[in-house]
Design a binder for these strands. Structure first.
Lengths: 346, 346
DNA sequence: ATGAAAGCGCTAACAA
DNA sequence: TTGTTAGCGCTTTCAT
């Protein structure tokens, strides 16, 4: 009788409830009762069971438990990039709410790739998360409809769902950008540049809309050369800024559409110190050390975004069955100097 | 952690393979074959099965699969705080390695609380992660021994395990701090302050050791009033700095033991602009916009830390069974100005 | 108070 | 090529 090779050792050789039961000389169900703190076990029996548990190093297999119970006490969060502090803060806030509900959070990065977003979301559904928070990378979420129908509570955050009707918790990008640009206008600027992310990204589009609204509210024309929507790669942003800041009629102020653009803009403006007239800057979304640098920003509250989305999710999980809701989280302007620079010339 | 009671509508009404089989008029195993892309199914049968899958909106339940297969294709990562960019980058790097191995990552925050670290690590073990990466909050990890014996591959990162022998991937805190302080000494400083985290934290202790080594190497005495180890709360750091920077013989340079201290130090030093002589600063660990601010730092590579730990973990998962290893990741000094300021007075 | 039996949804092993 | 039978480790149900 040849020894069958066992390439895939089971979970090590972990003891099961059955093993514990055998060792304690009790029935399986009694072990289950002890492990789960259910009543109906004499202290004496319980002692024997606990002894066996310790001796064997038993730990309940929650995978099996979950299979039987139906719910996993797990929620998923699909975000763009865990290395980005914005999402890190958001995720941490979700984690805290989940923890308060006795639930585990699994988060994963889509890397801004719609395909990865879908793959990850569906992987989480296959693992039977009870609920899902999605920060969209793509703009078509119909792939989630069967899951939602099957009972996966789903809330979108930061950006709305595409082509389906679903809960969403968003920052007020339109209002925030409008306020920021109005702030620059109030300080005397008339030629204001906008550098933001690709316009198919909802948040970027909203912020651009806010920019245009503020300009229009002030009766100011927008030269399309002042508007640079596209990738937020430092190279592209740097080039876009160079273009806006040169020529006979350069912009005197900049509105940066997100924090990566803001960071690049700060670098570029710092780099040309002495090499040109001062340029005002307001950025959407706060950056670390923004206070030290004196960067005026429209601050979002990523933690509030995450917390609110998670709370809505758990309300759904608890049975709230109203129509999909859209919650908007306000922004606030933090004046620190860079946005209060007056225009340098005509 | 109050468990909120949820109503019953579980994922119970989800179709199973059995339902698909019934609808397609085939056996259960045939559905399994189609779902898993196993050979031995005629295209025609496969078509019928796929049709049923689509019609029913079936998705394989990976919880059940995992139970049967023994491996969960999941690894856990216990870190301190997801909202901290250092851990965010580390986590993201782990995620990418895991993804390349077809494995899901579950990360969770200990909030620097040893109790939470243990709770989280054991929760992950109960969910039968195949492996675990732990960034210690506590300094006693004997609670993990039964798990490791039972086959949970475990690697510690950023800080070594306490009281057990296990793999660890660490930054060279000693060497980095020594280099940073030597850099300040090379620029003429003799009274150098050290502000770092609580000394029971391994990394903090190592960095302090590096500080002392550099001072000793240069034959410089260390006045214990220059050393402030403790919480990295801004208030405490601010107070510590105020003390060092006042008096008849203030320090002329500072070594900040971690990035939170660095950030506070930058704020404090910026705040006293004009209110005192310039003070040199070198920080351990990079900070965002450090280049713009001109902060000289000893840069760690959190992504390398995460990647290396994950690769070691997967090597263990693939059967590597040598003795526990300790891998040290180098740091590098990034001179940007703040560390090259000469001492302002005798 | 305790336990035996029947699944949860899936895959491994073995028929047919 | 296809289907049947056992479980994976746990909870549920219903006896005892």
């Amino acid at each position: 009788m040849a020894e069958t090779p066992r390439p895939e050792p089971r979970y090590g050789n972990r003891p099961t409830m059955k093993d514990v039961a055998a060792r304690a000389g009790v029935g399986l169900k009694t072990v289950s009762r002890v492990v789960n703190g259910e009543p109906g076990v004499t202290p004496e029996t319980e002692g024997r069971v606990r002894e066996a548990i310790d001796a064997l190093g038993f730990r309940r297999n929650d995978s099996a438990r979950v299979l039987r119970k139906g719910r996993t006490a797990t929620v998923g969060l699909v975000l763009e990039d865990l290395a980005d502090p914005f999402y890190g803060q958001l995720s941490r806030a979700v984690e805290e709410v989940a923890r308060a509900h006795g639930t585990l959070l699994i988060n994963g990065s889509s890397a801004a790739d719609p395909g990865r977003e879908q793959e990850l979301a569906l992987t989480l559904c296959a693992r039977r998360v009870d609920g899902l928070i999605v920060i969209p990378a793509g703009d078509d979420h119909r792939y989630l409809e069967p899951e939602m129908r099957a009972g996966v509570a789903t809330v979108f955050a930061d950006r709305p769902a595409g082509l389906i009707d679903a809960d969403a918790v968003l920052s007020d990008g339109f209002g925030g950008a409008r306020d920021g640009v109005a702030h620059l206008i109030a300080h005397g600027h008339r030629r204001i540049g906008f550098v933001g992310d690709r316009p198919r990204i909802h948040t970027a589009a909203e912020r651009l809309r806010g920019y245009r609204a503020a300009m229009e509210d002030a009766g100011l024309p927008v030269d399309e050369r002042w508007v640079a929507s596209g990738s937020t790669e430092p190279e592209r942003v740097t080039a876009a800024l160079a273009a806006m800041l040169s020529g006979p009629e350069p912009v005197t102020a900049l509105f940066a559409g997100n924090n990566r653009v803001t960071v690049t803009a700060v670098r570029v403006l710092a780099g040309r110190a002495g090499g040109g007239p001062p340029v005002a800057l307001v950025g959407f979304d706060d950056v670390e050390l923004g206070d030290v640098l004196g960067v005026t920003v429209i601050a979002q509250d990523p933690a509030a975004l995450g917390r609110t989305a998670a709370e809505l999710l758990f309300r759904r999980l608890d049975g709230a069955a109203e129509a999909p809701r859209r919650v908007v989280i306000g922004t606030r302007l933090v004046a620190r100097g860079s946005g209060e620079v007056p225009p340098s010339s005509g």
